[in-house]
Write a protein that binds this DNA or RNA. Structure first.
Lengths: 211, 211
DNA sequence: CTTGTTTTTGACCATTTGGTAAATACACGA
DNA sequence: TCGTGTATTTACCAAATGGTCAAAAACAAG
């Protein structure tokens, strides 16, 4: 038995588990959980199907493992948002980081999007336990910045949603964007656009009057 | 045979085809193409599986039919963007219409998102044939507005992307939003936020200097 | 080399799933 | 009421798929 529950995993175990997870990320992100097959993952990983089931208890466990790892990566930029830093700088840096993640980790973005699209059947607990508290905390920080007059007053929750939406869009809807932009690399121009959009939105005292 | 290719479809045929497509929209939007099963669709439609295959040639054809219908619905708001109208008003109205579609047609939004996420295997031709020309045309209109000084200068392509991203986000990531907003209806507050964000971005002569 | 352990495989299995065929029930105009 | 085309169901099938298992192979240590 692989004995994953305790003690040191062997060199070969680590290597193969990583190969499997990487292959699974490919397949799950491209086809969703139900659309992915163990055979596809096996082929992509260069291992036999039974061999994969030697390292993981089943399809489900592979998926769950990926989602858990993903959650950390995903929360990280929001964690790094520094309440002590300059508000506008911090938020624009957050936008930039998220955009870079879309460019560098599109598979992860799509894995996440797939999961949420399907109603977050496996991730819901994670969202409540990990994301929600962080989200509330960061909304509090942003609200405080606004109350202190350092940022224009907008709804912090929707601000965060709009950052997620606009940045992740470049990974999740890549197929569409490639058609519309005819294959041009969008990251640079997107960065310019998003930076100016959010700077504009958040720079205090410049807002158009709401009526 | 149902003889769908020619002549008048009977009352009962229309009714059943509609029931099937509605059920399929439920199932496909919730589980993606491969994740959906004919049995689920059949149950949801209140018909037997063979009966469904009496009206449609197969799973694929149901999906394709849905996507075709969807394309029209989806392009409609962009078509209605009036080059003769007031630029800012037109674009803000477009944002509003898209947001309302996310609220009123979340299944359609998710069906679309699923398809694009998987690389648009079935919709790619539609995107090139229908969406791309319209997209280019509208980018041209917006660019002209900007050149005429009626809107602030931003990249029209990314402007449209950001409108799509932010509005569709409320349908596609509903599961996440419900967790974070604890079930509050987000549409009203989202509308306020998005209106002010895009008004701010596009109102000429108010932009923060880009360096 | 020998022995004990880890890793890999080939052969299977049960279930699910898209799809078919033939028989049956039904609607409806003559 | 009958007959005819339409609609629906019952009973299947073949392929795909997640998963099992025992045995073989590979490997590490003495």
């Amino acid at each position: 038995m692989a004995d994953q529950t305790q003690k040191k995993p062997s060199r070969i175990q680590q290597r193969n588990r990583r190969k499997i997870l990487d292959a699974a990320l490919d397949v799950f992100s491209a086809h969703g959980f139900r659309g992915a097959t163990l055979d596809q993952i096996a082929e992509q990983a260069g291992l036999s199907k039974p061999n994969i089931l030697y390292y993981f208890d089943g399809k489900e466990e592979i998926h769950v493992t990926l989602l858990s790892q993903l959650m950390e990566t995903w929360l990280d930029p929001l964690i790094e948002l520094d309440p002590q830093g300059d508000p506008l700088t911090e938020i624009l840096a957050y936008v930039q980081r998220k955009l870079e993640m879309s460019r560098d980790l599109p598979r992860e973005s799509r894995l996440f999007a797939n999961e949420i699209l399907q109603g977050a059947p496996r991730m819901d607990p994670h969202l409540r336990a990990d994301l929600k508290p962080l989200f509330d905390a960061r909304c509090g920080v942003i609200q405080a910045w606004m109350d202190a007059g350092k940022l224009a007053q907008v709804d912090p929750r929707h601000l965060i949603f709009s950052i997620w939406a606009t940045t992740q869009h470049y990974a999740d809807f890549q197929a569409q964007i490639e058609v519309l932009l005819e294959g041009q690399e969008p990251t640079d121009t997107a960065a310019q656009f998003l930076q100016s959009m959010f700077r504009n939105l958040l720079t205090p005292g410049q807002n158009t009057s709401p009526a």
